[in-house]
């Protein structure tokens, strides 16, 4: 069961996260804090004409939240805001719902590696943390 959660991808992304660091010339950003564990991530966006031209994150978090943030930035870069919002909804239903989610949805890409997190209820908030930051950032122009 544990191996399903801490897959190679998650371990590797924890060590070498994608799109990590403050984004030069960002237009939007938001910090999200998890008061139960102290994880604290900030998501930066560069949005023009409704398209996410670039996205990054920084801060302190566990392997789950860092890997989730990495894959989120991969999945959202170059997407329109409304497409991003669709991916957000699909990812959340992957985490929350008991119903089958289309795991081969190309938009979800590697995000499906989090499908086993349901077995670790206390860790779902870790996977969601960067997405909460993204949602707030998208509404939070600098």
């Amino acid at each position: 069961m544990l191996n399903n959660l801490y897959q190679k991808t998650i371990i590797d992304l924890n060590r070498q996260p994608h799109n990590f660091g403050k984004l030069e010339g960002f237009t939007h950003s938001a910090e999200q804090y998890n008061p139960t564990c102290g994880d604290d991530l900030t998501v930066y966006l560069k949005i023009s004409a409704g398209i996410i031209d670039d996205i990054s994150f920084d801060g302190d978090g566990c392997a789950i939240s860092r890997a989730s943030a990495s894959l989120m930035t991969d999945a959202l870069k170059g997407k329109k805001i409304n497409e991003a919002s669709d991916i957000y909804k699909k990812f959340y239903s992957l985490l929350d719902s008991t119903s089958a989610v289309q795991q081969d949805d190309p938009n979800l890409k590697n995000l499906t590696i989090f499908s086993d997190i349901k077995k670790f209820p206390s860790r779902i908030t870790c996977a969601k943390l960067p997405w909460e930051a993204f949602i707030h950032a998208s509404q939070n122009r600098q």
Binding site: M1, L2, P35, C37, G38, A63, F120, R123, C126
Partner: peptide
């Protein structure tokens, strides 16, 4: 290299219960 929450989950899988987080003392 290991966040307390990840350690807590891995230990739990082995039947070991510890506390992780800010311990109500930020």
């Amino acid at each position: 290299g290991i966040h307390p929450h990840d350690l807590g989950t891995i230990l739990d899988e082995q039947g070991i219960a510890i506390r992780t987080g800010h311990l109500c003392t930020q």
